Computed example of a mutant assay.
Amino acid sequence: MRRFRVEPGLIGLDWNGFGDAGGVDRRFAENGCLSPEASNLIVEVEGIAVGTVQHREMIFSGRGPFQEIGIVLLPEFRGRGIGWRAQALLCAYLFQHWPIQRIQAGTHPENVAEQKSLVKAGFQREGTIRAAEFRAGEWRDGLLYSRLRTDPTPEI
């Protein structure tokens, strides 16, 4: 997780400048990177840490709590089917242990691989969020996907 904060090319389109790499250690010492508000989990394949998934609580209008998830994999592990499975497993976990109806995820219009991964993980595209993110010196659109508790669960 430290590397994603300090190596510009590692995180891909989500890179938005250098972050506090020590913050990862402080957060781990404080709560193991697990809390009701936000958690980070390591994605591991055959004993190798290949990335991280995150979830955080969000609220619509003060009465509609939901979880927002994200994922980042090391470049050499992308395109192997790891990402969609990790996101589907995270959703299964959240629906089992959190009283939520909705999980959402955002991605970039140019990240076609993540769009396919989200659909494979059971998400549906909801639409475009215009000028949602400041990246690489300009405001850029984002795409919003969601999965509801009542949506079909993908076979993992």
Rank of each mutant, 00 (worst) to 15 (best):
Y93S: 10
H108S: 12
R130L: 06
W98C: 12
M1W: 14
V119W: 00
P109N: 01
I11W: 02
T153C: 07
V43Y: 03
R3A: 15
R147Q: 10
G51D: 02
W84C: 11
S61P: 00
A86V: 14
T107D: 03
V112Q: 06
R149H: 09
A88W: 12
S61Y: 10
L34W: 14
R140I: 11
G64C: 12
E114A: 14
V119F: 01
E30D: 11
Q104A: 14
K116L: 01
Y145E: 04
E110F: 04
A21Q: 06
D14S: 15
T128L: 07
L73T: 12
S117M: 05
E44A: 09
I11P: 09
A131W: 00
A105M: 12
A131I: 00
Q87E: 13
A29D: 11
G83N: 07
D20Q: 12
R147W: 05
R130H: 00
A132L: 02
D14G: 15
I42D: 01
P109I: 04
S35Q: 02
P109L: 04
G62D: 03
E114V: 02
W139H: 05
L143V: 15
V112R: 08
I59A: 02
T107S: 08
S61R: 13
E44K: 08
P152G: 04
T150L: 06
L41V: 08
I82D: 04
R102E: 05
G17R: 05
E30S: 11
Y145D: 02
I103C: 08
N31V: 09
W15G: 13
C91Q: 07
R26Q: 08
R78P: 14
I156E: 03
T128I: 15
E57F: 03
L90A: 14
I129Y: 00
G122C: 01
A88F: 09
E133Q: 03
G32D: 08
V45P: 00
D141Y: 04
V112K: 09
I129L: 08
L148T: 11
W98L: 13
E7Y: 14
P75R: 11
G64Y: 13
D14M: 12
W139I: 00
V6M: 10
E7R: 15
A38K: 11
Q96G: 15
D151T: 07
F123K: 03
Y93D: 11
A136K: 03
F77Q: 07
P8G: 10
G122M: 04
H108M: 07
G32N: 09
P65G: 02
I82S: 08
A88R: 15
L74Q: 10
G106K: 11
V53I: 00
R135F: 01
G12V: 14
W15R: 04
